[in-house]
């Protein structure tokens, strides 16, 4: 706003208070007009984007409306009729596969656990090489950062598809996919934490003759540990969710069973599996929240 610059607290205006008032009015009118212009442009752009997106994605409201009852049917079919007199047998026939499902769920949880722990250790080590303030050569920092970026930008499901080619069906492909994605995500978050760390303790260790390892162990880690722990627990919760769906492509765990039950229209099986997955995820979230509270002293 060039007009505004002509008046200020210390600069006497060349042409008195009336002119100042008029200038102020003009300036605010210009501001308002600019804001109206921006909003109307944004609205036009938004509507155009909406129409374009609806066209590209063949959005058909009637197809949707016709489909809704079938979604209801699906969700309704997920819980079979359970009558009070035959309560136990109804539930046990609904959960006929409980043993198998729990075993698969255990595989899912171990996939998330191993992927998180191993991925955090590797990602954490790489994060030191990806932080600009750790005395690593800039070229190394650049290369490690780009590598981490690739690892985390490719979705874990896509990693799983690649690993399936190399290692065949089973949890190995899934756990490696989670591992690679975790390395990328943790490496980036940890590197950001490292770069925000206070440099004085690190310099102190260096000044008293410590090696690079000493600088990390006694200067850096004590300050960043709470953040590391918090990110790791959060990543574990995310990985549990990833591990349940990674089986959709055959990479092990409960996901494969869930995929089959949904695509073969075994609604009650799908419902039973979804309920135990939901319970497991909720339990793990609660445990992780409690742990985080105990370790870092505050919730997420």
């Amino acid at each position: 706003m060039p007009v505004e610059k002509t008046f200020g607290p210390k600069m006497p205006h060349p042409s008195g208070p009336h002119q100042r008032l008029a200038d102020f009015g003009l300036a605010s009118q210009a501001r308002q007009a600019a804001s109206v212009r921006f909003i109307s442009l944004a609205a036009i752009g938004f509507l155009a984007a909406l129409a374009f997106a609806a066209h590209v994605s063949r959005f058909d409201i009637w197809q949707l409306i016709h489909g809704i009852p079938r979604v209801g049917e699906f969700l309704g079919g997920m819980v079979p009729p359970i009558r009070l007199p035959t309560l136990w047998s109804d539930i046990s026939s609904w959960y006929w596969g409980l043993g198998k499902w729990l075993r698969l769920l255990l595989t899912t949880v171990t996939m998330a656990l191993f992927g998180t722990v191993a991925g955090t250790l590797i990602g954490g080590a790489l994060s030191l090489l990806a932080s600009a303030n750790m005395g690593v050569r800039p070229a190394t920092v650049f290369v490690v950062r780009r590598t981490l970026e690739v690892a985390r930008t490719v979705p874990d499901l896509v990693w799983a598809l690649i690993f399936l080619f190399a290692f065949g069906l089973g949890p190995l492909a899934g756990v490696l996919a989670i591992l690679v994605h975790t390395i990328g995500a943790q490496g980036k978050l940890f590197a950001e934490t490292n770069e925000n760390a206070d440099m004085r303790p690190i310099e102190g260790v260096r000044a008293s003759g410590g090696t690079w390892i000493d600088e990390i162990a006694f200067g850096l880690l004590p300050q960043v540990m709470p953040n590391y722990v918090s990110y790791t627990l959060w990543r574990f919760e995310t990985n549990i969710r990833s591990a349940t769906i990674i089986g959709f492509v055959g990479a092990g765990g409960i996901g494969m069973e869930l995929y089959e039950s949904i695509s073969l229209n075994y609604f009650d099986d799908a419902g039973a599996i979804l309920i135990i997955v939901f319970l497991a995820v909720t339990l793990i979230d609660m445990a992780s929240e409690a742990l985080r509270l105990q370790i870092t002293g505050h919730a997420a």
Partner: peptide
């Protein structure tokens, strides 16, 4: 996908 068919919707 099971309920309303394959596709972006």
């Amino acid at each position: 996908v099971r309920a309303i068919g394959l596709g972006p919707i």
